[in-house]
Each structure stands twice: as structure tokens, then as C-alpha cells.
């Protein structure tokens, strides 16, 4: 563990807490893409298959349980909770995310560390996480103005993988064998997808104005 990865995990945790706060406090999921939440639930379920078989540390196990539990709880809320699901705007959340799942699965069968179920699922989860934010970004551009909590959720979600890139650079220079190319390249793509969001987020912060994404 290094400070960059710990900062990344805490930033990721904050993004989840901000989203839970938004849904719980406002009893609304307006501006949130259910498809991105479903993709993230799939990312965690397919990445943490070895949750009970491959114990690394209490921290690792706890964080995995938090990410799996919160992502499933958010999907459940947006699909089942009577008040929250009413605020879900499925006419705007129209990204065909099943194509993302299929493309990532095909890529994972071709590019992986070992052609085993565990490694193919792990590579699948890494590729899927890189593109999971697309439905959410498309929804934000369609819905124009973004409420504060939703903007902060997306910001922290994007920032966490940027910390992981610093972690991979650190591990590259401090460890003998660097075997994290799949996660590293996918992480760079993932962070790059947030580039324009980060730009408009910074502008809104600098001008102390509402976050506006150009349609």
C-alpha cells in the first residue's frame, strides 16, 4: 500500500458516500445514470470474485464489501425504491450500455494476464470500469445543468483513478516486476474520459458558478 493508492481508495469511497448522501437526503436520483450504476455493480462483482478465497488484508476485504454493497444498494434504490425510482429519468439515460459490456468481455477474452475464468473476469472488470462512466457523462451533457452533489460525485469518481495512476508510477519505480499494464493503460483511458468534465468542473469552481456542460 502507498499513499497514492490510499488517497485513491478514500476518494473513491467519498464519491460513493456523496452519491448515497444525495439519494438518501434528497430521495431523488435526478441526474444519475442507472446504467452507469449497473455497470459499476458488474465491475465490482466481476472483479471481487476472489473476495472469500484470496484474503489480502482486512482493509482490502472491507473495502470490497463496501463497494459491492453500495453499488448494489444504489441500483436497488433506483429500480425499486418508490420515491427514488420516480425521479429516475429513463428517457435521458439512453446509452446502449450492453454494447459496452459485450465489447469489454470480448476484449477481456483476447487481452488478459492468463486465460482463466478469474483473470478474464478481472480484465473484463478493468475494461468495463474504464468506460462505465460514459452513460453518466452523456446524461449530464443532455440534462445541461448539474446539481452540486451529482457534480461532486462524478468529480471524485474521476479523481480516484488519477490517484491510482500515481500509484502505478510509484510501484513501477519501487517494485521489481511491474505487471499492471492492463490496469494502468485502462486507468489512463478511464481518467482521460473525464478530461472535459474536469475542465468544466474547474471553470465552475473558479467562477463560483453552476456546473454547466455544453450540450
Amino acid at each position: 500500500m502507498n499513499i497514492f493508492r490510499f488517497a485513491g481508495d478514500m476518494t473513491h469511497l467519498i464519491s460513493v458516500l456523496v452519491l448515497l448522501l444525495k439519494i438518501y437526503a434528497t430521495k431523488s436520483c435526478s441526474g444519475i445514470s442507472l446504467k452507469t450504476q449497473e455497470l459499476y455493480a458488474l465491475v465490482f462483482l466481476s472483479r471481487y470474485l476472489d473476495l472469500f478465497t484470496n484474503y489480502i488484508s482486512l482493509y482490502n476485504t472491507l473495502m470490497k464489501l463496501v463497494f459491492i454493497g453500495s453499488s448494489l444498494a444504489i441500483v436497488w434504490c433506483m429500480r425499486m425504491h418508490h420515491a427514488v425510482k420516480r425521479s429516475y429519468d429513463k428517457e435521458v439515460d439512453t446509452f446502449r450500455h450492453y454494447y459496452l459490456v459485450l465489447a469489454c468481455f470480448v476484449l477481456a477474452t483476447l487481452v488478459n494476464e492468463q486465460f482463466t475464468l478469474r483473470e478474464v473476469c478481472w480484465a473484463f472488470s478493468i475494461y468495463l470500469e474504464a468506460v462505465a462512466i460514459l452513460p453518466q457523462l452523456v446524461l449530464l451533457q443532455r440534462s445541461g445543468n448539474v446539481d452540486n452533489l451529482t457534480g461532486q460525485y462524478v468529480f471524485f469518481l474521476g479523481a480516484y483513478r488519477a490517484f491510482y495512476i500515481l500509484n502505478w508510477i510509484y510501484r513501477y519505480f519501487t517494485e521489481q516486476y511491474f505487471t499492471r499494464w492492463i490496469a494502468c493503460i485502462a486507468g489512463i483511458v478511464q481518467t482521460a474520459l473525464y478530461a472535459d468534465f474536469f475542465y468544466y468542473y474547474f471553470i465552475s469552481w473558479k467562477n463560483n458558478a453552476k456546473l454547466q456542460l455544453p450540450a
Partner: peptide
């Protein structure tokens, strides 16, 4: 386990 990639990151 030796030989299997260790995914110690979240």
C-alpha cells in the same frame, strides 16, 4: 498462490 497474478489493488 505462486504463478497467479496477485491483484492486491481494489
Amino acid at each position: 498462490p505462486i504463478g497467479q497474478p496477485m491483484h492486491d489493488e481494489l
